[in-house]
């Protein structure tokens, strides 16, 4: 599943110091639950993104443990406090060991 996985992040380009901003993330991924069977009746092995994190300048905003009940193309919306200018770092961890990253810079002022 490491092929064609594309993260998308919606974050403001700037904020005032201390402002709480809304972040949205979406990543293309099948999130194969492990509950389904293929045409021959064999179980399709689980293959999901099992963790998502967001940090700002190294400090944690949110850390999500994800289970197979998260829908295809996982979507999250949450809020971050922006104390100063810097980088939001978003990371998705795949069952297969792949790690997908996205960074968004936010200006303050």
């Amino acid at each position: 599943m490491a092929d064609g996985v594309k993260p998308r992040v919606k974050a403001p380009k700037s904020a005032s110091a201390g402002e709480v901003v809304t972040l949205k993330t979406l990543i293309s991924h099948n999130m194969e639950s492990g509950q389904r069977k293929d045409k021959s009746g064999n179980p399709i092995p689980r293959s999901i993104i099992n963790r998502f994190t967001c940090e700002f300048n190294g400090a944690s905003v949110i850390d999500v443990k994800m289970e197979p009940a998260i829908s295809t193309n996982p979507y999250f919306e949450f809020e971050a406090k922006i104390p100063e200018a810097g980088d939001l770092k978003f990371t998705w961890y795949d069952d297969d060991g792949s790690v997908y990253e996205e960074t968004k810079s936010i200006k303050v002022g």
């Binding site: 944690s60 905003v61 999500v64 443990k65 289970e67 197979p68 009940a69 949450f78």
Partner: peptide, 26 residues
Amino acid sequence: NPTPGVATYTFGELAGSAAASTRIRL
């Protein structure tokens, strides 16, 4: 669900609120 787990959100020091939205399978 066959397995009840969906997600566990842990909010960090820079969380703007203890809130989150997602889309799930039922």
